[in-house]
């Protein structure tokens, strides 16, 4: 147990460090991220450019810090949106029961079967690229794990004595939900949200990689990798570095999320079958 605790501390430390670095990026980057220097195209790592330069001679480290702002913001926003929506739907299902529950649960089942990427492609095909469609694409399918978890938890809580007692003394349904049900979901939901943040970070990168997410002149980790791909052999750092950033961030939040979920629910939270 001691060792496991240490990995989680390390993960939390790395995550905090990166979040701070990305947040204060404009004050710490070594070069302006958009500054081109064609004389130094595809340079390897050096004391001047710690992570080398890209095909336009832009500093990879600066672009990594800049790109992280977009990736992490979109992933965080999408996590919050899907969490709010999912918890609302899950609690509604569990409290209303009957056909409302049936309908919402079936919708959830169906959305789970539909590939996330196909939905994203569909939304981009209909609404075009941009910040709004990107968030929508991630939200339409992303709420399902939250709804599933909060529905199960809310069902359990609802059958406990204090909820019945609150009902008997005349508390309104909304008071019961906000005062007695939701506080009991907070721990596991927080764990789930951390896990989903990692997943969404990868999804945002995937859409940007395909050119359907962030649009030039803005860039994020996914679009950096797409731009660096033709030069993989000459300058592998261009694709290695942003990929490693996504991997490390996703790994850190997964470790923290699993730990949080274990602490909140006791047994290991089995990963839900989600995919890109």
């Amino acid at each position: 147990m001691r060792r496991r605790l240490n990995t989680h501390h390390l993960a939390a430390a790395v995550l905090t460090l990166v979040v701070i670095a990305v947040a204060i990026a404009p004050w710490i980057y070594p070069y302006p991220p958009a500054q081109q220097n064609l004389a130094e195209r595809l340079a390897p790592a050096s004391p001047e450019h710690w992570l080398g330069t890209d095909h336009l001679g832009r500093d990879t480290l600066s672009r990594l810090l800049e790109g992280g702002r977009f990736s992490m913001t979109v992933a965080a926003l999408a996590t919050m949106l899907t969490c709010l929506l999912g918890v609302a739907i899950g609690v509604l299902s569990a409290r209303r029961r009957g056909w409302v529950d049936e309908f919402l649960t079936r919708t959830n089942d169906v959305l789970l079967a539909v590939p996330e990427m196909v939905v994203a492609l569909f939304i981009v095909a209909t609404l075009g690229t941009g910040f709004g469609p990107l968030l929508l694409a991630l939200t339409v399918t992303g709420w399902t794990p939250f709804a599933r978890l909060s529905r199960t938890l809310a069902y359990d809580v609802s059958s406990r004595g204090f909820v019945e007692a609150a009902h008997v003394v005349g508390c309104s349904p909304s008071f019961i939900i906000f005062r007695h049900v939701i506080p009991h979901l907070a721990g596991p939901i927080l764990g789930q949200a951390t896990l989903r943040f990692g997943h969404l970070l990868i999804s945002v990168g995937a859409l940007s990689y395909l050119g359907l997410g962030v649009q030039p002149p803005q860039s994020d980790w996914g679009s950096m990798m797409a731009a660096a791909q033709p030069y993989t052999e000459r300058a592998p750092l261009g694709i290695l570095a942003p990929g490693l950033a996504i991997f490390v961030m996703a790994l850190c939040v997964t470790l923290i999320g699993q730990r949080a979920a274990r602490m909140a629910t006791g047994p290991l939270l089995l990963p839900t079958a989600d995919r890109t």
């Binding site: 990868i202 694709i239 996703a250 790994l251």
Partner: peptide, 18 residues
Amino acid sequence: TQSFIAMPEYWVAPLLVL
């Protein structure tokens, strides 16, 4: 195996190609 979840396909694929 748990760390595989965090690996983006668009990162693994170019590395395998490389």
